[in-house]
């Protein structure tokens, strides 16, 4: 366990260095602001162009919150799979890391943690922009903080294990590995109702959305921040679930994903050693 914690801590530090030391702190700060704000402003303008209403409507807050929280999906999910690509193909250090006395599973978790930290900066900036500039109808006093905390812990845990699943899959790939994380994040953006309720999806696509832990994470997050009634009114297909049931589903889904990720990771690691994929460089 000590070795696992050490691997996690060192990988987090390494990941943070890779993410932030490519430039001076000022440019890094600008980079951290511009990208998430531009992302969210695309949706804000799409919303304004059509509705011509102010930003105090509950639907606007529903969309905005989902999009802000989704930054974590992009960061963590893509971050873990990129760690494999970066270390193996770009820096060509994966083989050295692998033979060092670390727990590889926790090493990749640590790299995901670094992306969580940079993602948190983006989420904070996006939410701050929403509250201060766009006047989001969110009262800090009205937020159900314990429920929000539980939702965040479970949601981020599910993201971490999904990231490890993706990282393990990336380890097996020789082609298109660089687009896998972004593509999966793009698919989940559609399926889990990040910016619209699942009811808008065609009936044949909805079951996929209901099978994803992220759907329940985003819904519980919205209930904690916007209030259960407002969220239920916008998303009727999840309205039948109580707040407790949402968290329970999220917990079970996270546990199932964790078990799957551990077994899949072990299989992938074993196969990578057999096939010589740990030190593979494809220049693809």
């Amino acid at each position: 366990m000590r070795e696992a914690l050490r691997s996690f801590r060192v990988a987090t530090w390494l990941g943070w260095q890779i993410e932030s030391n490519w430039t001076d702190p000022f440019l890094f700060f600008v980079y951290s602001i511009v990208k998430p704000v531009a992302s969210v402003m695309i949706l804000v303008i799409m919303y304004w162009v059509i509705t011509r209403t102010d930003t105090t409507s509950p639907y606007f807050a529903y969309m905005y919150l989902g999009n802000a929280a989704y930054i974590y999906v992009g960061s963590i999910l893509v971050g873990v799979s990129w760690a494999v690509i970066d270390d193996r193909e770009h820096y060509q250090t994966l083989k050295y890391i692998y033979v060092s006395p670390i727990k590889f599973y926790f090493y990749l978790l640590g790299r995901g943690m670094a992306r969580f930290l940079t993602g948190s900066l983006s989420v904070a900036i996006t939410m701050g922009f929403g509250l201060l500039v766009l006047g989001l109808p969110i009262g800090l006093g009205a937020i159900h903080w314990p429920y929000l905390g539980a939702s965040m812990v479970l949601g981020l845990a599910s993201l971490a294990v999904l990231g490890l699943l993706l990282g393990a899959a990336t380890l097996q790939m020789a082609r298109h590995y660089w687009s896998v994380g972004e593509s999966v994040a793009g698919a989940l953006y559609l399926m889990c109702g990040a910016i619209f309720p699942l009811d808008v999806l065609p009936a044949w696509l909805r079951p996929l959305g209901f099978a994803l832990p992220l759907t329940y994470w985003l819904e519980s997050l919205r209930r904690a921040v916007l209030g259960a009634e407002a969220s239920r009114a916008i998303s009727p297909s999840l309205a039948g679930l109580s707040d407790g049931q949402l968290l329970l589903i999220l917990l079970v889904a996270t546990l199932i994903s964790s078990v799957m990720s551990i077994y899949f990771f072990r299989w992938s690691e074993h196969r990578a050693r057999e096939k010589g994929l740990i030190d593979m460089t494809t220049h693809y």
Binding site: M46, Y47, I50, Y59, M63, L190, I195, F196
Partner: peptide, 8 residues
């Protein structure tokens, strides 16, 4: 689907 959700 976002545009559909806001009835564009």
């Amino acid at each position: 689907f976002f545009y559909r959700a806001i009835q564009a």
